[in-house]
Design a protein around this nucleic acid. Structure first.
Lengths: 104, 104
DNA sequence: ATAATAGGCAACCAAATGGTTGCATGTCAA
DNA sequence: TTGACATGCAACCATTTGGTTGCCTATTAT
């Protein structure tokens, strides 16, 4: 679990997860597009995400495709949120979402 | 949100959250007990947790009492987990919990 | 009044981290 | 086969981070 938190600590890695959340199964070079980092930097980040089991990869031809794995993220909440609190928190964020939506 | 992830990245800080989850509203010195860190190190960690809004404090006499705030933790899951995935993941971890319980 | 308790501030240090450059390897297309 | 494309590996560097020590302030109890 330690690796998961370390992996999520960096903004670049979180934005890589965002990209995969938006479009799953991207190759390294695809994930590099539009970023101001070197490909090698992105590689390093992806390795860290893989080791944390937040990203799974499969090779297809010469490409390595990356997929987001939401399981470890889901487990985070289970550590510090009691069961009876979940409902209230969910209701709270739904309310927040509605209020923000109203201002669009 | 960046501060939340940074704050959660460190194992010492996570164990402080664990302690508050077990017993809410502890003072600095209470939180220091049994740890192999200096009080000043713990102070630094608590400041980081406060800035991330993961811990709220109130002063009572000369003591500063610390409380766990689960809201930012709850928000993490909302970022990368689609609504339709939540049910499955919750079922999965419940299953896992049951299986682990069986081995006790 | 004074000692003990609870906490705060600042300077300093070693280790970890995020990034770069340069080169190597494997695979596909013409 | 040969060049282009997709990825991998390693050395190196600046900055951040977690921790320490030393000293200071505020509040409580005797």
């Amino acid at each position: 679990m330690d690796e998961v938190f370390k992996a999520l600590a960096d903004a670049s890695r979180r934005s890589l997860l965002d990209r995969l959340h938006a479009k799953n199964g991207q190759s390294l070079n695809e994930l590099c597009e539009g970023l101001e980092m070197t490909r090698q930097a992105v590689t390093k980040h992806l390795v860290i995400l893989e080791e944390a089991n937040l990203v799974t990869t499969i090779r297809h031809r010469r490409e390595k495709l990356h997929y987001l794995n939401p399981v470890p993220i889901h487990q985070i909440g289970e550590r510090w949120i009691r069961k009876f609190e979940r409902g209230k928190l969910a209701a709270l964020s739904e309310l927040k979402r509605q209020l923000e939506k109203r201002d669009e």
